[in-house]
Design a protein around this nucleic acid. Structure first.
Lengths: 170, 170
DNA sequence: AGGCTGAGTTCCGGATGGCAACTCTGCGAT
DNA sequence: ATCGCAGAGTTGCCATCCGGAACTCAGCCT
């Protein structure tokens, strides 16, 4: 399956996600190790043992997470063949997965800012076009860069209508 | 404790995080439920039962996560007192926590884009200053808005120096 | 046929989580 | 002063998940 949309996804996971995109995304990548595995693939590791060894995740969990990630369409299995070896699978990002870059970049930026190694950021993100350094921003439709403290969640068009209950972000 | 910096944090968690800010951040907020609990607090829920009931997290886990979040300085315990009741604790965001808004916003945006409810986004983020709609961007120092597919991780000044090993993002 | 290698799978004991019931603490009413 | 109440956890029990190491499996090469 290529990718799941909300409804299929709900059914597949048998979860009531409370109609929230944050929860929906987390049920794709919110399990232990999943985002770190995605980070490794972003960073250029594509093979089972490479990732297991570098990340220190148990082979059992890696195996399961890779299967899930392929299943939801974030990773794609390809074959590679080293000279004199049989062909083996390799895991690559799908186009969907590139949009997780925002999430990883936000986590990276938070860590650099608040848990930063005094020696400086261990990892920087570069723009492959120009080589410049990339960072994450919250931008308002008014054109301004918005600090996190000035962001307020509100209901959107797809909010669940529950007349009897106070409608809060969920 | 107010907030931990990298080294203290490492010691406290007894983890080798592989010198990566993504992993560091995830060890603060990467456990099951933690980001969803933060989302609830961002959304204006501050009390134990409120969060437990709305989110559907078990009281045991909520109790533990709130304790962790206070410990690492993302939430702050305050007292409130309802008329005719004894004073009870309430959980509020610390200034550090506001910078998690980037992470939550990125998760929200991914979910809206790729797992979106056809009815539209259930939650929108607004700029408290002007009421405009806020979204997350990757911006290059060259001034351009960068798609996720054009972002490449590279080593920064704080990267671990391991001469014998290939140095990859970690 | 036998060995090698990468990619998983299996087994086991310990940690974590869900659910529901229980406790604990002040407050106001009896 | 005692009772009951409500919010905020805590505890017990059971199921699931996880880490680590050993094991299996398939194809390529000798």
């Amino acid at each position: 399956m290529a990718t799941l949309r909300y409804s299929e996804f709900m059914e597949w996971r048998e979860l009531d996600l409370g109609n929230c995109s944050v929860a929906a995304t987390l049920s794709l990548v919110g399990e232990r190790w999943t985002l770190l595995i995605m980070r490794e693939v972003f960073a250029g590791l594509h093979r089972f043992d490479e990732i297991a060894d570098h990340l220190g995740v148990s082979r059992r969990v890696l195996s399961e997470r890779l299967r899930q990630l392929v299943e939801v369409g974030l990773l794609e299995r390809r074959s590679y063949q080293e000279a004199g070896q049989r062909s083996r699978p390799e895991y690559h990002l799908t186009p969907h997965a590139h949009d997780l870059q925002w999430v990883l970049a936000a986590l990276l930026q938070y860590g650099d800012t608040h848990l930063g190694d005094p020696a400086g950021a261990p990892v920087l993100l570069h723009h492959s076009g120009c080589g410049g350094q990339v960072h994450v921003e919250l931008r308002c439709s008014c054109g301004h860069d918005v600090p996190g403290s000035e962001v307020e969640p509100g209901l959107g068009p797809g909010a669940v209508r529950v007349p009897s209950e106070e409608a809060t972000l969920s």
